[in-house]
Write a protein that binds this DNA or RNA. Structure first.
Lengths: 200, 200
DNA sequence: TTCAATTTATGACTTGAGTCATAAGTCTAA
DNA sequence: TTAGACTTATGACTCAAGTCATAAATTGAA
């Protein structure tokens, strides 16, 4: 995350999006650096049959959609507000100028990209080679270790819906539901009134 | 790519690897920044049954394995020399010092990560949601547009084996062979004495 | 408060990618 | 030069995830 005060001198504007507003679409050119002030954003793709794949969720303080600012490519996915959100937007050229004049902030961008690349490397191998139960458990454990899941007496609460887990792992809802049930039977997970918990 | 001369002042050493030598393994800590001088490296994973997933190939001038230098994570995959290779290695701490003292080089790292993140976003959506023919064609078109495929009278030559295409897309060799045959029938590809060509 | 949409759930059936076997062509290192 | 490994190829069979239908519980917006 880059301090808002620093970005303000480079024409940063606060954009407001309502839940389910589209911030940018797959196949278009990148014009802005985006950093979330409040709300939540998801990046996703839809295939020809309308099946969704979720690239990731982004929360306050996080930036998204940088790659096409630095390499000559189009957006590989859509960005959609999943809640009413306020997002800081800086024009591409001004953002690049900012980085040149604040080189230490480049490390912040590197750390962010490094983190996302790590997630994608783990999930790509998982989706390409593992069975549903393995995929679901890997996603849950990744979320516990690297996202901000809350912990209580029952363990870590997995606050994804079954549908979201499916869209993150390339599985159908029914398959996720069955995988979670099976993992519960094997005592790898707990289901307490429909909520999923994991103890590590 | 960062100029070798710049890195030399930070304790860069040339490491030599023979074909199929392991450079680092999944689950271990990162100690070096790696940049290829000559040869080729692949990053991959093996699942429990030994099925391989190839995260990517890296060629002279390219760096690899940076994410765990910048975030506190373990390597998500193995790095293996696919040819006899010479690789520049700089100790993690010295590399970070280098970046602080040569801030403009950070852009080079950002561009590299951005490029790889773009590839992974495209392929993750592909592997999660598309059928074999779509996946194979997407990989080939991505390679044509963003890697260095040679073009001749027959079109772009796809210089991956069917097995490699499978390991890059999460498919079995037989499935790739059948997908390529079917794509040839649909005139999306040409097969000329076992080599695959694509005209765009 | 209510009604529609979403989420979790389960059973029966289908299907396409995986598996296995086999073989011919090609490459490569001794 | 040759033997073994790899690559491309094809057919038959299997099975696990997807599909479809249905329904109850929960959520949330009007």
């Amino acid at each position: 995350m880059i301090q808002k005060e620093l970005l303000d001198h480079y024409g940063a504007v606060e954009k407001r999006y309502e839940k389910s507003d589209v911030i940018f679409e797959v196949g278009t050119n990148a014009h802005y650096y985006y950093q979330i002030i409040s709300g939540e954003v998801k990046m996703n793709n839809y295939n020809e049959e309308g099946k969704e794949f979720i690239q990731g969720f982004f929360k306050p303080g996080e930036s998204f959609g940088e790659p096409p600012l630095f390499v000559n490519r189009l957006y590989p996915a859509n960005a959609i507000a999943t809640e009413d959100s306020v997002i800081l937007a800086i024009k591409k050229d001004l953002f690049k100028q900012f980085l040149l004049e604040h080189p230490s902030e480049a490390i912040s961008i590197i750390e962010n990209l490094a983190q996302r690349l790590h997630y994608k490397a783990v999930m790509a191998a998982e989706i390409a080679s593992e069975d549903p139960e393995h995929r679901v458990l890997q996603l849950i454990d990744y979320a516990i270790n690297h996202f901000d899941l809350s912990k209580d007496d029952n363990g870590y609460l997995v606050d994804f819906t079954r549908q979201q887990i499916g869209d993150l792992t390339g599985l159908r809802v029914e398959t996720v539901i069955r995988a979670i049930k099976s993992l519960e039977k094997k005592q790898m997970l707990k289901i307490i009134n429909r909520k999923v918990y994991r103890e590590i």
